[in-house]
Amino acid sequence: MLPPTSLTVAPAENVVITGENGSGKTTFLRVLTGNLKPTGGTITLDGQPIDERDAGTRRVIAPLIGPVAGYRDLTVADHLILIDQTWGGDRDGAGERIAAVLERLDIMRFGNRFLAELSSGQRQLVELSMVLLRPSALLVLDEPEQRLDEGRRSMLGEVLRERVAAGSSVVWACHDRTLAEATATRTVHFPGAR
């Protein structure tokens, strides 16, 4: 259930959504990415309706909501190659781009593993790398700090700040108050479930 919500996200803004379980954070994020249609109201991107199937929407908004349905027979590197190439990356620079994102998240050593061979925290970072690799102006993340240790949470905060500094926006749901306060430019609190 999503309560009446009004929110505008500006370029280079880092918006954290907080709220207790069941307050509608994930539903809101799904609506924001065009993955769910709201029963009332509108959601627009530069004045245009948002639909996850629309190429324009997908090029701007990169969501990580829930576990990524990865291929059981492809390695982490294979997934990243597939993502990079289908998003139009040039062939020669693919290796460099993929290495950069793996290095930034400190998961280079997992590149040759299948997803089933990763721990839940490692998988969380790999899924984050898949979203960071694709082109986007707005990152939408649902509790990306889950299953990460303290050091990795700090790293996540740094990565998000870097994205914002580069001109991208971030909207994410978070239960870690310290991380949220250290990272966000704005905090939106969702009221509890009714």
Binding site: E52, P63, L64, G66, V68, A69, W87
Partner: peptide, 21 residues
């Protein structure tokens, strides 16, 4: 048709690849 079946298995989730379905 493993690719097609995987694609179907992820229906309802945000798509990973940069291609229309």
């Amino acid at each position: 048709t493993r690719g097609l079946q995987h694609h179907a298995g992820s229906v309802g989730e945000p798509a990973l690849l940069g291609l229309p379905w």
